[in-house]
């Protein structure tokens, strides 16, 4: 993207260089274009400030001691730089419970994301490439699931899981995370557009079983869509709060969202929890922030191709 803009800019300067001796009108056009570039970029930069300032603030706050946090200017660093003390306190507090929460989140989001993507791919592929009785009914029902608010099912799911003895276990958060109706919907669109019937036919003539065709041929062709579905699901589970809040009472099983909120609720009693919470927020924002920046190009790719061909 940046490369193409650079190319575009190069081409523009080249063109304007060639046109220097031509009419005054093209000069005016170039000037107009330059001023619109400045205006647009300035607006984009101001909006970027809005999105980045809170993250900047939490970074500054986590470098301060509790006294400095309240006595010094919030958008600038205090004379004493205590980031490392704060972070080591975050990591070691209560026997390293923060690390445990982080690993729990990683488990829920990572394992949940991978398996949910595989199931959504298999289902979407089946609905796109086979004609069978009840196909429309199954698809319609799943599509209805996209519109059901996740929090509406969480309460009854808790009642159901308590009866099955699953409440307050890893499974209670993991099992619901394995289903992504929206992911299945995306995979179906993508499979319809990209998986070629004649290719499947050729594989069949070679004697490959239907499941094998899906695993070798289907999954490979669906890869761009799978990345998108995986990312959606990963972020969805990582950000989920209501489901673990309803399901879990044991702090050992908490994901990071629940854990940090647990710390925040103690700041009234012990102000040192401000340090723990800001440090913990910083540590949890950094990995996902990096992931977002690195992965956003994949995100775009998968979605675009899906929507172009649909």
């Amino acid at each position: 993207m940046t490369a193409t803009t650079a190319q575009r800019a190069d081409a523009e300067t080249e063109r304007s260089a060639r046109q220097t001796k031509s009419t005054r009108r093209s000069d005016r056009m170039a000037g107009k274009r330059r001023s619109s570039t400045i205006i647009v970029t300035a607006i984009l930069a101001i909006v970027a400030l809005y999105f980045l300032v809170p993250v900047y603030w939490v970074f500054v706050a986590s470098t301060k001691s509790t006294e400095d946090l309240f006595s010094t200017y919030g958008f600038w660093f205090a004379p004493t730089f205590s980031l490392w003390e704060n972070l080591s306190q975050v990591l070691s507090y209560d026997g390293g419970v923060f690390v445990r929460w982080f690993l729990n989140s990683l488990l829920y989001a990572g394992v949940g994301g991978v398996i949910a993507t595989y199931f959504a791919a298999a289902g979407g592929y089946a609905l796109a490439k086979y004609d069978f009785k009840g196909r429309n009914f199954v698809f319609g029902t799943i599509l209805g699931g996209v519109l059901v608010p996740g929090t509406a099912t969480a309460l009854p799911l808790f009642l159901l899981f308590s009866q099955m003895g699953l409440a307050n276990t890893y499974w209670s958060v993991l099992l619901p995370s394995l289903v992504s109706p929206f992911g299945l919907f995306l995979c179906r669109i993508y499979a319809q557009a990209t998986v070629d019937n004649s290719l499947m036919e050729a594989a069949r003539i070679d004697g490959a079983s239907e499941l094998r065709i899906f695993h070798t041929l289907g999954l490979r062709i669906l890869t761009p869509a799978l990345v998108t579905v995986f990312l959606f699901q990963l972020v969805g589970i990582w950000n989920n709060y209501f489901l673990p809040l309803v399901m879990l009472s044991d702090t050992e099983l908490f994901p990071i969202t629940l854990g940090l909120n647990n710390w925040l609720s103690q700041v009234d009693r012990l102000p040192e929890f401000y340090e723990l919470t800001t440090g913990g927020v910083l540590l949890s924002v950094i990995p996902l922030g990096i992931a977002m920046i690195v992965l956003q190009r994949f995100w775009r790719g998968g979605l675009t191709e899906g929507s172009v061909k649909a």
Binding site: M1, T2, T5, P54, V55, I256, T257, T278, I293
Partner: peptide, 29 residues
């Protein structure tokens, strides 16, 4: 007209990776 669209897109998208609870803790401060 936009310069550095890649940077701006990443900056705007970053908050989506911050869970709602954590975003709220952040803003509540």
């Amino acid at each position: 007209s936009a310069r550095w669209p890649g940077f701006f897109r990443a900056a705007y998208f970053l908050p989506y990776g911050v869970p709602g609870v954590i975003a709220t803790i952040l803003w509540s401060f």
